[in-house]
């Protein structure tokens, strides 16, 4: 495992590094097989094209969605912003020197970030981790200060840290700004009402896909609490392996914003044998359903999520989900 290889450069990297200039944090030295090397070369060639070439983003989307995603963080650092149509010159590189201490969410964010140690690369030097925690706090408060209608939720920092680790503070701000006003906007409403309604889609979809499995889970009214952390954090709160988190983010950034939600029934379906083998009792089922094994075939499940999205588009199931929710 290597963190930033040259610790002497840490101070230079922290705070100003973005886009093409920071060292990339690596949790594991990726094992490259031939296919990965080939794919990486293809993506790198593609990235040499003009960032304003419309075809570039389409190609990057295909790379992000096909097996293995964007391969490693060197590529991600350059490709992720482009997937959100963010070009290098869109990034404000000046240091954010605002004092956020008086922000109403300040102490909540600090408490959460201080507890997010697990999300930093293992073995990260203490001073660097503390510096990154400060960056993370600033990053989050910068977004919710600029958009006061967006409310901070516990789990938002799990999303923010994933970007901070890959693309650096300033680029993360612009990416989060886009995501928070689109993909994550319902999570950031004053209440979880809309999020809970969206999570009802899981049952509507399951009922189409596997009525028997849906009935089994519904019998004890296990609800959607088991997958709430998956959805709110794009799975980063639950998955232990960093490589899996960034691979999922590749796909999500390249997809319809509903994909993180449609992935839930794909995971449940994949684990149906374990679920049917679990006693049909609330706590037992909650516990089994909330498992997110690291050996899930994510590439395959993500593609299934896309298939479900085509077959059962949100606009068709929205009403049914709403009725389900009202009946509760």
């Amino acid at each position: 495992m290597t963190i930033v290889e040259d610790n002497a450069n840490i101070e230079n990297d922290i705070g100003q590094g973005d886009f093409y200039d920071t060292e990339v944090l690596k949790f594991d030295r990726a094992v490259y097989d031939e296919e990965r090397i080939k794919k990486k070369e293809e993506i790198e060639r593609c990235l040499q094209n003009n960032p304003y070439d419309d075809g570039l983003i389409d190609k990057l989307r295909q790379f992000a969605k096909s097996a293995g995603g964007l391969i490693d963080d060197e590529i991600r650092k350059r490709a992720w912003p482009l997937l959100l149509a963010l070009r290098p010159e869109d990034v404000d590189t000046s240091d954010d020197t605002t004092d956020y201490k008086s922000h109403v969410e300040y102490s909540q964010v600090v408490l959460d970030v201080n507890r997010a140690i697990r999300r930093f690369p293992p073995g990260i030097p203490y001073a660097q981790r503390v510096a990154m925690q400060d960056q993370l706090i600033r990053l989050i408060l910068r977004v919710i200060t600029k958009y006061p209608q967006l409310k901070y939720y516990q789990g938002y920092h799990d999303v923010a840290i994933t970007f901070l680790l890959v693309v650096g503070e300033n680029t993360s701000f612009h990416m989060l700004e886009k995501l928070s006003t689109h993909h994550l906007k319902h999570f950031m409403e004053a209440t979880l009402e809309k999020t809970s309604e969206l999570l009802e889609y899981v049952y509507v979809l399951l009922d189409y896909l596997h009525p028997e499995l849906c009935a089994y889970i519904s019998k004890v009214d296990v609800g959607t609490m088991f997958c709430l952390p998956w959805y709110l954090t794009w799975y980063s709160h639950t998955l232990a392996q960093y490589e899996h988190v960034v691979r999922l983010y590749d796909y999500f950034l390249a997809s319809n914003p509903f994909i993180p939600l449609y992935l839930i029934p794909a995971i449940i379906l994949h684990r149906q044998d374990r679920i049917f083998a679990t006693e049909c009792e609330l706590s037992a089922l909650h516990q089994e359903l909330s498992q997110l094994p690291e050996d899930l075939p994510f590439d395959q499940l993500l593609q299934q999520a896309d298939e479900f999205l085509i077959k059962y588009p949100p606009e068709n199931i929205q009403k049914e989900a709403h009725i389900r929710r009202l009946n509760k």
Binding site: R115, R118, G155, M225, H237
Partner: peptide, 13 residues
Amino acid sequence: SDCPHTIGVEFGT
């Protein structure tokens, strides 16, 4: 020592 925050509910027995 690095117990993460809980989102929703967790379960123990």
